[in-house]
Simulated scan of single mutants.
Amino acid sequence: MSWWQRLLGRGGTTKLDPARPDLVVVASSFDDAEACSTALGKALDWSADQPVVLRHHLRVPVGQVNAVQVIAAQIGYDTASVDGADPANLVLQRVQVLDALHCSQERARIAAVAHRHEGDVLGWDALQPAERPR
């Protein structure tokens, strides 16, 4: 993979099935004040050179869920889950190689989408297979 594909979080190493049953949370932050670099610095089992399933946890009014899903799909996110409550708890996910810069950028991007649709971001987490080659 070229340096620019890695920089953009795209390319051949992002072959990770988000539905794998052996995925575990390797990094997370549900604190608005915590920097992604801090959260990733505390992550003990995260492999920086391997793709993750990056998930953003949002709470949005039920009437805004579809609009958020449409915008999220345009930037490469799928809906991992959504409940029927109002406001709805919505989890958006995508597979990418993760570093502090891209985590911060994605966090800001998703926060902007949620804010424009009267919602909040609760936090994010990153998943990788429990057993992976080192």
Rank of each mutant, 00 (worst) to 15 (best):
M1E: 13
M1P: 15
M1W: 11
S2G: 15
S2W: 09
W4Q: 13
W4L: 15
R6S: 14
L7R: 09
G11K: 02
T13M: 14
P21C: 10
D22R: 08
L23G: 07
L23Y: 12
A27S: 01
S29Q: 00
D32V: 08
A35S: 12
T38A: 15
L40K: 00
A43N: 00
W46I: 01
S47C: 03
P51E: 02
P51L: 11
V52G: 11
V52Q: 10
L54N: 06
H57C: 01
V60T: 03
V60I: 08
P61Q: 00
V62N: 13
Q64P: 03
N66A: 15
N66K: 12
A67S: 12
A72Y: 08
A73W: 02
Y77N: 09
D78Y: 09
T79C: 14
S81I: 06
S81Y: 09
V82F: 06
G84N: 14
D86I: 02
D86E: 05
D86W: 05
P87H: 03
P87W: 02
A88P: 07
N89S: 15
V91P: 06
V95K: 08
V95Q: 07
D99P: 01
A100I: 00
A100R: 01
H102C: 04
C103P: 02
C103K: 00
A108G: 06
R109C: 12
I110H: 03
I110P: 00
A112F: 06
A112V: 00
R116C: 02
H117D: 07
H117S: 04
H117T: 01
E118T: 05
V121S: 05
V121A: 10
L122I: 15
G123I: 09
W124E: 13
A126C: 11
P129A: 08
R132P: 03
R134N: 11
